[in-house]
């Protein structure tokens, strides 16, 4: 029963979601929206679970003075400060501009996030250096294509027209062909995975084969 019931639930819900796509009736639409609401409700309850997990892990690290416990302490303080300023002083208006909650979010969190994102530029440079080393024929083709694509942003005088033609060719012919093949494979793969799950062939996601 412990094995059969979850599979039956997954199969039932899976087949319902499949057939409702083809039935435009209002009742089916309502059921679909209801199912989506349920995922949101479960998500909200799961957030409490996540909060418990995070707090538990951080507190354990701080208590044991594990390596980098100071970061855990900062994370814990940050977590509880945000909960406090979000709920206690003006819990109804905390998402309005000018409140302490929004000030911390805008002037501390967003700049930190932007700094993290800006690292991407440097990481792209280092990854590109590795990827574009012309060690094999394929890597050389990649390198040449990348140079052509990058040059489109630079004025090259009379060569610009030729470069633009090559850029258009690369993007609309080999690149687009590869992208379409990728999407086709992903579409079929996703359908196959859904079918395997609905038929109970694939049960790894439930923690058992």
């Amino acid at each position: 029963m412990r094995r059969t019931l979850p599979i039956a639930v997954v199969a039932g819900v899976g087949f319902f979601m499949l057939i409702q796509y083809f039935i435009p009736l209002e009742e089916f639409e309502t059921l679909y929206e209801w199912a989506l609401d349920w995922t949101m409700v479960i998500g909200c309850f799961a957030m409490a679970l996540g909060l418990y997990s995070l707090t538990n892990m951080m507190v354990t690290k701080v208590r044991r003075k594990a390596e980098g416990w100071g970061y855990s302490l900062v994370a814990l303080v940050g977590l509880f400060v945000m909960v406090f300023v979000g709920l206690v002083p003006h819990y109804q208006d905390s998402l309005k501009y000018g409140t302490l909650f929004m000030d911390i979010f805008e002037y501390i969190y967003i700049p930190i996030q932007a700094a993290m994102f800006s690292l991407l530029a440097f990481y792209i440079a280092s990854a590109a250096y590795r990827a574009f080393r012309a060690r094999t024929v394929l890597a050389t083709i990649l390198l040449v294509s990348a140079i052509i694509i990058m040059l489109r942003l630079i004025p090259l005088g009379p060569l610009s027209a030729i470069n633009q033609w090559m850029v258009n060719f690369i993007l609309t012919v080999p690149n687009m062909a590869a992208k379409r093949a990728f999407w086709l494979g992903v579409g079929l793969g996703a359908t196959a995975t859904a079918l395997k799950i609905m038929l109970g062939i694939e049960r790894g996601y439930m923690g058992r084969d």
Binding site: I42, A46, M47, L49, S53, M206, G207, R208
Partner: peptide, 20 residues
């Protein structure tokens, strides 16, 4: 994990794998 539900499913998946 970056999603609490994903975390719960991952815990169950790994627990079952260890059990098996």
């Amino acid at each position: 994990c970056c999603d609490p539900i994903v975390m719960a499913v991952a815990q169950e998946t790994v627990r079952a794998a260890y059990l098996e």
